[in-house]
Every structure is written in structure tokens, then in C-alpha cells.
Amino acid sequence: MKFSFTDDQRLFAEGLRDLLANECPASLVREVWENGTGHSPELWSHLSGMGVLSIMAPESDGGMGGSFVDAILLFQELGRAAVPGPVLEHMAVAVPAIASTTFGAPLIAGDSIATLWVDDSPYVAHAAVADVIVRKDHVLESFDATDAHGMDGGRRLFTVAGGERTNANANVGGLDPFDAMALASAAYLIGLSERMIEIAAEYARVREQFGKPIGSFQAVKHLMSDALLKVEFAKAPTYRAAFSASTGADTTTRDISMAKALASEAAYRTSRSTMQVHGGIGYTWEADLQLWMKKAWALMRSYGDANFHRRRVSGFVLA
């Protein structure tokens, strides 16, 4: 029993954090919201160049052959920086699932961009910037996308019609694409939450009322500590779910649902507490916090919300 990441896994995640600190500041996230694209081609090519986008492609197809355990801290770092665009869909589903098809090589190289359309969803995120849409049993190209006005400007929503179909299986190992995305989103939500807590802590250290930094007040301390508690206790279940998915454990579905339920609730609680710590400025378009909050509110409902996943866990746990 060894519940830790290797030095290589940790160093890769730290490298990604450093890259994103430079290449994906809040100003870039805001820029792609406000220019209406929800995607940064420059950032995409940085991520491709570092090997992030292809980490889960099989080595035989020119990728890094990474498992979910290898990728999970990267999903978390992408969330910490609120990276816009279809990074999760591309990395966690499209690349590993269809690497060996004719679509594979440009996806692995990052020249072609994929997003995912899960069954039963009326909307497809990121469709306007995607070259291909992966569905459970086929791939779509040359489709029409109509803006559905999503809340998160870094995760634009569309309805999709038409398109050319090519049959393909979107399972990742034995994992349904919905579950692969639930797992990747759980880690991304944890990263978002970590950063929201940092932003609010930075604010609480400098904002003064009654002649003192508001972070010195117990009401503020306790709000922040409770948010951190939820986030910290969502991490180990998420990493465990990655291990289960990587090893094809019998409990994989249950473990992914537990991770997504806990991470969704942690992210929501964190968004509420960190906005409250900001006071009036937290309710403005100008405050960067909204870039993280809205992504949390979008992702916590995507690929199964906390209620859905809790009920799925119930199916395994209760008689």
C-alpha cells in the first residue's frame, strides 16, 4: 500500500503549474471570455508542446502512455489556472480513446482539437473551437454549432446539428467517456477550489475593516477553514478513483462517483465562501474570482452532479 505520487508525476505537475503561471494568468482567461472564443490557440500550443495534451495517448501512437494516475494532478493544475477550452475532453477522452484511428495523429500532436458530446446532453461544450466531436460510438466532423450561451466564457456551450459521422469507440480503457470526464472534472474542480481559496486568502490579508485585515476575524477564518476542509478531503478520493480507473478495479464506477460528488460539493461550498469573503467586490464582473466560480458552477453540473453521483454510490453501498 503506497498512496503517493512518484517524483516524476509531481515534477510534471509542478512544471505545468509554472507554465500556467506564465502562460495562463487570469488576464488571459478573461480575454478569451471577452473575445467570445473561450479558447486560446497560443496556450493550446504551449500545452501541446509540453506533452500535456497527449499524456494519455499510447506510446505506440506517439504519446506518453500515461494512466489516469499520471494525468490526475495535471487535470488539477489545469483547474487551478482555470484553463479555458476543451482540455479535459481532449486529454481524458479523445486522445486515449481514438489515438489509433485516422483521427489520432493530429489529436496527439495538438493540431486537431476534440471535444465530447455525452449521451442525453442537449449541449456540447467547446463545439465552435473543436475540429471533431467525440460521441460514445462515433466521431462527428463538419457539424453546425449554435451558441447556447453558457455561463462560463471559458467553456462555451452549443447545440450541434448535422455533421459527418465516422464510427469509433470512445471508451477509455474500459471506461465510459462520461465516467472518464467525471473523473477528470473532479480533479479540475479541486484545482479550481484550491485557487479560489488562495484568491480569497490573498484578499483577506490585505482588505481592512475596523482597522484590521478582515482575515484576522474568526468569522472569516472559519468560513475559509471549512472550505479548505471540504477541498482537502475530496483529494484522496479523487486520486483513489484515478488509481481504480488505471487498474480497472471492480469499484471504479463507485470510486469515480464518490470523487465527483465530493469535488462538486467542495467546489460549490468554496465558491460561496470565497465570494462571501470578498464582500461587494465578489459580486462584480471585475473580480477575477468569477472566472473560477462560474467554471465551478458549470463543471459541478456536468458529467453528473453531486446528487446523481451520490445516488450512484448508494446503489453500490446500500442494500
Binding site: 478531503f233 451520490r310 448508494s314 446500500l318
Partner: peptide
């Protein structure tokens, strides 16, 4: 109430996992 039972089951499982992670960290 069923949801509440599952919630607290997840908490206990989360605490177990968190502890194994902490303890691995201490060993390393």
C-alpha cells in the same frame, strides 16, 4: 435519509483514504 447515509459513508471512506495518504507521506 438514504442520501444522508451514503454521504456519511463517503465521509468515512474519504477519511480512511486521506489517512493512508497522510501516512504514506510521513513514511516518505
Amino acid at each position: 435519509l438514504a442520501d444522508a447515509v451514503t454521504d456519511v459513508w463517503m465521509q468515512a471512506e474519504g477519511y480512511r483514504l486521506h489517512t493512508y495518504q497522510t501516512v504514506t507521506g510521513m513514511l516518505e
